[in-house]
Design a protein around this nucleic acid. Structure first.
Length: 735
DNA sequence: AGCACGCCGACT
DNA sequence: GTCGGCGTGCTC
């Protein structure tokens, strides 16, 4: 009896599809991990062969024949497939979409997986002018030669593909005449610096100890939490660990939270190692992504720097995974397939039996908990390299003080002193725009978004009102739409407003604003950072962007205008986030020999966690905050899964989630809490009503078992058809 | 998710 | 009379 192909197709259905092998193909020759072209409904799709079976799960009469096998060798190894199956089960996400997340768009669309580098047609002679004459009777060959003259280093295959005539025959003609040849450009991303291998830096004892511990674990699974204060030399540890992995003939994957962090690190890796370094993030073109992907898959590239989407990339002989800034929430995909690249990385290391290193100056409470449970090994780098001092904290009680655009007289004085010393000050403001609200002083009307439960944000720069949640915008109105009064006032603080105020208070100072608005244009952020480093800036005003990874050696004062907004919030994780943010922003100050000061404006100077953070630093905070979580039975002491539903109909999401809650309660277990449904924190967004339902349990298996049992019944519900719903395992934003 | 089938309003 | 609105049903 012929074998049945079990194929993952990229559709939101939680199952595999059975096919008969294409005519003339013996299923016995097929290995899982090859792509299969299949008829699917009325369409053709590309799927992934996940396995072979003796019997189909549907009637034989319903089976169709697969149309083609795309790959002679598997694109994904059994290890890769095991990881994807685990992720599909753990995140309760359709297998086809999970597999799609491991491929690039071109590979998903059936593109060939033949060469990692782009093929180039390169001239074989210097004298192209006479070569063109020699081809006078072959106009197409002559045309190709003119193209070769424009690209003396070779015409990329993709460029040839843009020609609307038969360039292949012409190229073959040129090759026969010895005028051109094909070559493979495997290192298009990595020119020049391959030969320059800079020597490693000398390590301090902490770094030596950390490296020795990880080195000893090579070849087997261990998860490490590398807790290193800002400036403690984590990157050097990563570089030397990379060296260790390469020396053993392995490949290494280094995952980072943001694209804008990669260039500096990329430069450091490229100047240190003589092997190709591949990059993988959403800013690359599809051809570049495929090149990096195939380079790692075939083992031709040894080092990968990538963002969360790279965690599923196949790697021929992966020796170690490093994930830097492990606390960063951008490792969690927030839509569609909601995986955590950090947790997937740990599971991948476990399945492959290799070490994984999670680095951070401010580890997540989840990772701190895993250390306390003995699941992760703790490595510490508590000292700043070069002996730079840790910044000093000052709590500024702003109660009863007259503020000028959110700035207290004391903070203004601190800034003045800093400027007088010729040093830079950094102001952290957690909202972009001029003011988060526009209100009518006469009647109290507030500018609201018509599609969301949110206020419109005033942008003074271009005189517009914007909704930061759905993208709605309109020009700044001149009068109240309620009472007609023209006394409209911006309420609250945004980066633009603080920038304007500082310009008035310090007219001679050069202030720059760094937020999504001021850095939207390509290259703008780099230009601003360059100005800052060259000392052409006195005051920096910015959002979270300033807290991430950038080094500002000239900054000696950091001001946080409003810590309270992060301390008092409905989200139980906001305290942890605020402490991470404060510590990270503080880490930007007082590099090298200059001592930094961090000033926190607050109306709650007695807040216990704030005090712990200042007195004992982040690890003291983490301990205290963990105790609160333990007492409240919140993560990491409980496991959560969040059901979300949205629809334009007001009732549908609530009715659907009530059905889910009922089904869950039928399976009663005291160990599973079903909380809700409740309206999402912003119940209406982009014109859709949003509800959520939280499952929580101290027992992970029980939580997952319940979800698994529920899912088939939920898919069949009539209510499910009227909403868009999803499930988020280990949610980090309860929104 | 796509894509088609299917039944009700304003247009050549 | 038809083009097209998006409800609902299916994909081995």
């Amino acid at each position: 009896m012929t074998k049945i192909l079990k194929v993952a197709v990229s559709v939101p259905l939680r199952r595999l599809f059975d096919y008969v092998p294409p005519a003339g193909t013996d299923a016995a020759d097929l290995k899982p991990g090859v792509r299969v072209e299949v008829p699917f409904g009325r369409r053709r799709k590309f799927g992934m062969l996940m396995g072979l079976a003796d019997e189909p799960e549907v009637d034989r009469g319903r089976l169709k024949e697969a149309s083609a096998i795309l790959d002679s060798e598997p694109l994904l190894s059994p290890d890769d497939l095991r990881l994807l199956s685990w992720a599909s089960r753990y995140y309760h996400h359709p297998i086809g979409e999970v597999v799609a997340a491991a491929l690039t768009v071109l590979l998903r669309k059936g593109s060939a997986a033949e060469w990692a580098g782009e093929r180039l047609l390169r001239p074989s002679t210097e004298d192209l002018a006479s070569a063109e004459q020699a081809c006078a009777r072959a106009p197409r060959q002559a045309a190709l030669i003119r193209l070769l003259r424009e690209h003396p280093n070779g015409v990329p295959h993709s460029r040839l593909g843009e020609l609307d005539w038969d360039w292949r025959s012409a190229a073959e003609g040129l090759i026969r005449k010895g005028l051109a040849s094909w070559c493979e450009n495997r290192e298009a991303d990595a020119p020049a610096c391959h030969s320059a291998v800079s020597p490693p830096f000398t390590l301090n004892p902490d770094q030596q100890e950390a490296i020795a511990a990880v080195r000893a674990a090579l070849g087997a699974y261990t998860a490490f939490l590398l807790e290193g204060v800002t400036g403690s030399g984590k990157t050097e540890v990563y570089l030397q660990l990379t060296q260790e992995v390469l020396a053993r003939g392995g490949q290494i994957m280094i995952l980072l939270p943001e694209i804008n962090l990669t260039p500096q690190l990329q430069a450091r890796f490229r100047s240190r190692f003589s092997v190709p370094v591949a990059i993988f993030h959403s800013g690359l073109t599809e051809a570049e992504r495929r090149r990096s992907w195939l380079g790692m898959q075939r083992g031709e590239v040894s080092i990968l720097l990538g963002t969360r989407s790279a965690v599923f990339m196949p790697v021929k002989s992966l020796g170690m995974i490093i994930l830097d800034e492990e606390h960063d929430t951008s490792f969690k995909q927030q839509d569609g397939f909601r995986f955590s690249a950090r947790d997937v990385a740990v599971m991948r290391a476990r399945l492959l039996d290799i070490p994984v290193v999670l680095g951070s100056a401010t580890p997540s409470l989840e990772s701190v908990y895993n250390v306390s449970q003995g699941r992760y090994r703790h490595l510490r780098l508590p000292h700043r390299a070069g002996g730079a001092a840790q910044p000093g904290f000052r709590l500024l009680d702003i109660r009863g003080h007259r503020l000028r655009e959110g700035l207290s007289p004391a903070l203004i004085a601190y800034i003045a002193e800093t400027l007088a010393r010729g040093e830079q000050a950094l102001l952290f403001v957690n909202r972009r725009g001029f003011a988060p609200t526009l209100t009518c002083h006469a009647c109290g009307w507030v500018a609201r978004c018509r599609r969301c439960d949110a206020n419109l944000v005033v942008h003074a720069g271009d005189h517009r009102l914007r909704c930061h949640h759905c993208g709605f915008e309109q020009s700044l109105v001149g009068s109240c739409s309620g009472c007609g009064s023209e006394d409209l006032r911006p309420l609250g603080l945004g980066t633009e407003r603080v920038e304007k105020a500082l310009g008035e208070i310090f007219p001679g100072a050069r202030a720059v604003r760094i937020d999504r608005d001021s850095t939207r244009r390509k290259g703008r952020l780099e230009a601003l950072l360059n100005d800052i480093h060259e000392g052409r800036v006195d005051i920096l005003i910015g959002t979270q962007m300033l807290a991430k990874g950038h080094h500002f050696p000239r900054v000696t004062l950091v001001g946080i205008t409003d810590v309270d907004s992060g301390l008092y919030s409905t989200d139980f994780r906001s305290g942890e986030r605020t402490a991470q943010l404060v510590t990270q922003v503080a880490g930007r100050a007082g590099r090298e020999e200059r001592m930094g000061t961090v000033v926190l404006q607050t109306r709650h100077p007695g807040h216990p966690l704030l005090h712990v953070l200042i007195r004992e630093g982040y690890s003291g905070f983490a301990k205290a905050c963990s105790e609160e979580r333990r007492a409240a039975l919140l993560p990491p002491f409980a496991y959560q899964a969040l059901w979300r539903a949205e629809a334009s109909d007001i009732e549908a999401p609530r009715r659907f989630l009530e059905r889910v809650a009922n089904l869950a309660n039928q399976r009663t277990s005291r160990d599973l809490q079903v909380l809700g449904p409740v309206p999402a924190p912003m119940a209406r967004r982009a014109g859709r009503q949003r509800y959520q339902l939280l499952f929580q349990s101290g027992l992970r298996n029980l939580l997952h078992g319940n979800i698994e049992a529920l899912l088939p019944r939920i898919s069949e519900l009539d209510e499910a058809k009227r909403v868009r719903w999803s499930i988020d395992i280990d949610p980090i934003d309860l929104y």
